[in-house]
Nucleic acid binder design. Structure first.
Lengths: 245, 245
DNA sequence: TTTGTTAATTGACCTGAGTCAACCTCGGAC
DNA sequence: GTCCGAGGTTGACTCAGGTCAATTAACAAA
């Protein structure tokens, strides 16, 4: 039987540190961060990392798996805010109100590292590059949201889905996976919700892109056949001069 | 003739400090921040504070007037990201890339304080409450954007405009102005762009709300006659448990 | 005052995406 | 195996909001 507590990997040895801590930290500084960090907690599909309204204590880094964040609406429905892959942080929007603004739900078996925010803040005072890293991280998140505002404000269904697929592909590549073929861990329903479209529209667009030969779709499996053409579809309403990544 | 350099008001005496620096700073700490800050620069309608792509050096606090931020799109159009009133910061999305992601244009005669970010960052290492303030500020900005994502993803034209009007009213009240009657400094075109709607739709919705007696519209002047009803329109697709403010 | 220009309104019409409903297809549970 | 239920697809129809075009209002320049 596997002892969960044994799955302790120091930040310095974590394969994600390039994504999670892309900054110059001294060996000794990493250890200090490491000491603050609580070890990965394994979570099963459907479990919540936290829920909207919960008191805020920690940020979470995804170590493995996928997490979706979403806000519940007055009418009982929800709005998906984002999908988060390994190396990405969730909970940043909770700092100000000191309670979570959105819920975070695990889409497949995942594990996350917990970063108590108070400790992090203290550490950031002592390690300038850590402070800088967090300012940048928050700023980056803002820039991402703005790109999303543009997408929801202007783009057609086709542009939205094309942009989404390209974005997912890029993030897979950045993690060392294929950007030509991958499995989407989220449902059509979640994709639609995220992109401000009905499930049926997502389904139709997948079919259309497949009919045009741009992608091949089989259930959750996506193959990108013609990245050029997909990019052309996405770029028509894209942010000026955004090469991303 | 007015000497512009004479319009120097220390942060400690600025009427906006409650909005701009809502935190406990020692007298001496405020002076240090004050020393870093460059004095208000007056700007005329149509002038740009900065443009998308410009190198990032400073954040700006609006002291008077209104500023809109927007990103240029590939197709030559633009997406309005936000409207900024006195006491609000612009440029936060530029920290990561070290260049501005959006342009900031003045909608009416305005003045802004410039905060060189490097100096600010140094200061934040020495003044814990300042660091905390900036983390919170960035987080708050994220939460705002998420609320906007919800609006663009789900809300109808009526819900969008109602939400917008209530939001503007709240911000006017927070600044000591009437929340029942005010002048919108932005054009219908900008409002439409911001809300992901056509100008004509904005116009039609204004007319509809007026016909229903909820508001009175004359050019840029708005009078809210029935806040209850306006709030009801807005709340149908609102974020759960968001009293804002 | 007239004139030019830009913003705003209104109407007629069109269309992209939502809605509703039927059906299909996996992948368990038994 | 077969049954079941959730997720996904497809078609037919509807409608909110976009587009296009004409008209009006506000205001600055001459």
């Amino acid at each position: 039987m596997l002892d969960i507590t044994s799955i302790k990997i120091a930040c310095s040895e974590c394969s994600l540190s390039r994504l999670c801590l892309p900054m110059s930290l001294e060996e000794q500084e990493i250890s200090r961060l490491d000491a603050v960090l609580k070890r990965p907690r394994p979570l099963k599909r459907g479990e919540d990392l936290f829920q909207a309204g919960d008191a805020f204590h920690s940020l979470y880094v995804i170590r493995a798996g996928t997490v979706k964040t979403f806000t519940p609406c007055e009418d009982g429905s929800e709005q998906v805010i984002g999908f988060h892959l390994p190396g990405e942080l969730v909970g940043l929007d909770a700092i100000e109100q000191e309670r979570h603004m959105c819920s975070a739900r695990v889409l497949e078996t995942s594990s996350v590292c917990e970063l108590p925010f108070d400790r992090l803040q203290e550490l950031a005072l002592e390690i300038p590059s850590l402070q800088k890293h967090f300012f940048r991280l928050l700023s980056q998140e803002l820039a991402k949201d703005e790109t999303m505002l543009l997408l929801l404000g202007k783009a057609t269904a086709e542009e939205r889905l094309a942009t989404f697929l390209i974005n997912v592909a890029k993030r897979f590549r950045a993690r060392g996976y294929s950007d030509k073929e991958f499995n989407l861990s989220m449902s059509r329903h979640d994709i639609g919700n995220y992109l401000g479209l009905a499930v049926e529209t997502i389904s139709r667009m997948f079919s259309r892109l497949q009919d045009e030969g741009v992608i091949s779709v089989h259930r959750k499996n996506i193959v990108i056949n013609d990245l050029e053409r997909l990019a052309a579809m996405a770029h028509r309403s894209a942010r000026c001069g955004s090469d991303d990544e």
